[in-house]
């Protein structure tokens, strides 16, 4: 892990230098766009879509829809974000999502190349239900968000534990189907150091009570350049997880996305 640790430390140092270079400036985040994973909602009528980020639609002042559109045909999914009563300077929102991963899992359960899951096992109908809360506070240049969610995995049949996909990012996101439920906690800090540049640092904890491999931690830093219509982000993701084979670190770098917006 030494090489990755050194690489990680250098990257974090560079990004902190960039961040601190902007501390002398003050720039306020616009609360109406590029606000995913905070308690702020998109402006009514605005649509945002990334290569990897979901399609998000601001339906009203209090309601936002999102879906991973590219995956929808093999993994139907839909989430809503609802805004709630503010408490002082703190904004509150809740998220509620449904996902049906069965078609995708059956697609990758196959013989030959592309067989991620062994075809000897059958994949029952699975429905994932997620409910969470987001609490955000906007400071002058920082937007801080606290997150918590409960994921429930419903199975309409037997799901053999040997069908797990023991990979970073994937394993904790499917684990609720093997353990029935899981919890996720997160902290996001976004610093706007100019009207065009911001940097996001986050950390998420996944916990699956009662599971032998019931813990994962993910952290990412993303530097983004954005305008009202376009957003380019680049960074890294560091993952620590417990898997059926043991504990492991993974450094995924670079990670990037391009998002485009329509409407308001």
């Amino acid at each position: 892990m030494e090489g990755a640790e050194v690489k990680n430390i250098k990257l974090i140092t560079l990004l902190l230098l960039i961040w601190s270079a902007g501390l002398g400036e003050s720039a306020t985040a616009d609360e109406s766009f590029w606000v995913r994973e905070s308690a702020f909602l998109l402006q009514r009528g605005r649509i945002e879509k990334g290569i990897f980020q979901p399609l998000i639609y601001g339906f009203s002042e209090n309601l936002e829809f999102s879906t991973h559109a590219l995956a929808f045909f093999v993994m139907p999914n839909l989430s809503i974000k609802l805004s709630h009563q503010n408490v002082g300077n703190w904004r509150f929102a809740s998220t509620h999502g449904l996902i049906y991963p069965t078609p995708l899992l059956r697609l990758i359960s196959r013989e030959g190349t592309g067989g991620i899951i062994s075809p000897e096992f059958s994949i029952p109908h699975l429905i994932g239900i997620s409910n969470g809360v987001l609490v955000s506070r906007q400071f002058q240049s920082e937007l801080i968000t606290l997150k918590a969610a409960i994921d429930v995995g419903l199975k309409m049949g037997k799901l053999d534990e040997r069908t797990t996909i023991d990979l970073p990012l994937v394993y904790p996101r499917l684990n609720s189907f093997y353990t029935s439920c899981g919890m996720k906690f997160g902290l996001d800090v976004r610093h706007q150091f100019s009207s065009k540049f911001d940097i996001l640092a986050d950390a998420d904890w996944f916990v699956f009570p009662g599971s032998d491999d019931g813990f994962a931690w993910e952290h990412k830093i993303l530097v983004a350049y954005h305008s009202r219509r376009n957003r380019f982000s680049l960074g890294y993701k560091l993952v620590y997880g417990e898997y059926p084979f043991g504990k492991a670190w993974h450094l995924i770098a670079p990670i990037f996305d391009y998002q485009r917006a329509w409407g308001k």
């Binding site: 359960s109 196959r110 013989e111 030959g112 190349t113 592309g114 067989g115 991620i116 899951i117 062994s118 075809p119 000897e120 096992f121 996909i165 023991d166 990979l167 084979f245």
Partner: peptide, 11 residues
């Protein structure tokens, strides 16, 4: 291999 993406072999 960390993961062999064939026939479900995996790690």
């Amino acid at each position: 291999a960390q993961y062999v993406p064939s026939d479900g072999i995996g790690r």
